[in-house]
Simulated scan of single mutants.
Amino acid sequence: MTPVFAHGSLRLYLLSLLAEQPRHGYELIQALSDRFGGTYIPSAGTIYPRLAKLEEEGLVTKATDGRKTVYEITAAGRAELLAREGDLDAIETEVTDSVRRLADEVRFGVTEAMKSLRADLASAKRQARDDGAATPPEATNEPGAATRLESNRALHEADLVLNEFRQQLRADLRRSAARSRVPATTVPELRRQLAEVRAGILASLSH
């Protein structure tokens, strides 16, 4: 992410926040985060060294309030702000520009992340499809799975054969009936032969 504050700007901006009211370190971090709409949250390692420097220069003081260290601007600090009022106005403009830039970066990052996610999902889908095509179900380690698959496949093919046989025989009988060539013995003979075929199939299934 590109720098939010130009060199020395954060120091002056912290002074301006302390001019509003005394704050402890976390409150300063939260105030900065609020000013930037959550797009920029400075670390403690960024804030506390600058507060220590401001204290060394006599621009802020600190006091302990329970377990918190509260920083307060001094008269010298207010004089510094007054003397650099023009610089502070420029920093406010800088902050506005930074918020806009950071928002654009976040928006771009989210857009790219969504594109990446969609690409990953599409890739995973293709990989799963390829894996399914490359690895036949017979290769599964589940006990009996290959046998069940083969049995279901045979059953499906048998259904196709029976349907095809029925359609062909029906068409043949209708053509013969159109020429008055279907004798009365046709149906008993059909029953007998079908029964023989069924018995033979059942015998082969019992082996």
Rank of each mutant, 00 (worst) to 15 (best):
V4S: 05
V4K: 07
V4D: 08
F5Q: 01
A6G: 07
H7F: 06
L10I: 00
R11W: 00
L12M: 08
L12Q: 05
L12W: 00
L12S: 07
Y13V: 04
L14V: 02
L14E: 01
L18H: 03
L18E: 04
A19L: 01
A19M: 02
P22C: 01
P22D: 00
P22F: 02
P22A: 01
P22R: 01
P22G: 01
R23P: 03
H24Y: 11
G25I: 01
L28W: 01
I29K: 05
I29V: 13
D34A: 11
R35H: 12
F36N: 02
G37R: 05
G38S: 00
T39Q: 06
T39L: 07
I41C: 05
P42C: 08
P42T: 06
A44E: 09
G45C: 05
T46N: 10
I47E: 00
R50A: 00
L54D: 00
L54E: 01
E55W: 00
E57H: 00
G58P: 03
T61Q: 02
K62R: 02
A63L: 09
D65V: 07
R67T: 15
V70R: 05
E72F: 01
E72D: 04
T74H: 04
G77H: 03
R78L: 02
A79C: 08
E80G: 06
E80Y: 06
L82E: 13
A83E: 15
A83Q: 13
A83M: 13
R84A: 10
R84C: 06
A90E: 15
A90N: 11
E92R: 15
T93P: 09
E94C: 06
T96K: 11
T96F: 09
S98N: 11
S98D: 12
R100L: 15
R101T: 14
L102H: 10
A103I: 13
D104Y: 12
D104A: 14
E105R: 13
E105Q: 14
E105K: 10
E105F: 12
F108G: 13
F108N: 13
G109D: 15
E112G: 09
A113Q: 11
M114Q: 07
M114D: 05
K115S: 09
S116A: 14
R118N: 05
R118Q: 06
D120M: 15
L121K: 11
L121N: 10
L121F: 07
A124E: 14
R126I: 12
A128F: 11
R129L: 08
A134T: 04
A134R: 06
E138I: 04
E138W: 02
A139N: 02
T140R: 09
T140F: 08
N141E: 15
E142W: 11
P143F: 08
G144T: 02
A145E: 08
A146Y: 02
T147A: 07
R148P: 09
R148N: 13
L149A: 10
L149I: 10
L149T: 08
S151Y: 07
N152P: 01
N152I: 10
A154W: 06
L155H: 09
H156Y: 12
D159K: 09
D159H: 11
L160S: 12
V161N: 12
Q168C: 04
R170L: 07
A171Q: 10
D172V: 04
R175Y: 05
A177V: 03
R181A: 15
A184V: 09
V187H: 11
R192H: 15
Q193E: 15
L194W: 10
L194S: 11
R198E: 13
G200R: 12
A203D: 07
S204R: 15
S206F: 06
H207Q: 14
